[in-house]
């Protein structure tokens, strides 16, 4: 069966109901956290290096599981899209990524 997400993904938000008021922040910084800036730069660097193209990148975010899509922040989706594509294209492996993450998690304590 064809996946429903091809027809109408959760990312296609135009006209949806029930999200509540638009929340604005006075004097909003460009990045709220350092990891956001690094996420953007990593994705841009991978795009510039042709490890994936812009359409693949957008699609990688549109494929994010709907409930995570709705509760995640903008740069979290950028991050997960980037990781997904780099894994799929074999630029990094799941094993080495997990090993590095475990290492950093342990160091954090």
């Amino acid at each position: 069966m064809r996946r429903r997400s091809f027809l109408n993904g959760v990312h296609d938000m135009g006209g949806m109901h029930g999200f509540g008021p638009i929340v604005r922040e006075a004097d909003e910084p460009v990045f709220h956290e350092e990891w956001e800036a690094h996420t953007l730069a990593l994705a841009r660097a991978m795009l510039a290096g042709l490890y994936f193209n812009l359409d693949e990148f957008r699609h990688s975010m549109e494929r994010i599981e709907p409930s995570y899509y709705l509760r995640s922040s903008y740069y979290e989706r950028w991050l997960e899209g980037t990781i997904t594509l780099l894994l799929e294209k074999g630029v990094i492996s799941q094993q080495e990524f997990q090993a590095r993450l475990d290492e950093l998690t342990e160091r954090r304590g």
Partner: peptide, 25 residues
Amino acid sequence: IPGPDSETALRVKALESLLLEKGLI
């Protein structure tokens, strides 16, 4: 937005360090 000690921030660090190590960035 997840903070500096979040799992998300660690995932970014893990990814960046791997890509640096491979000489891709």
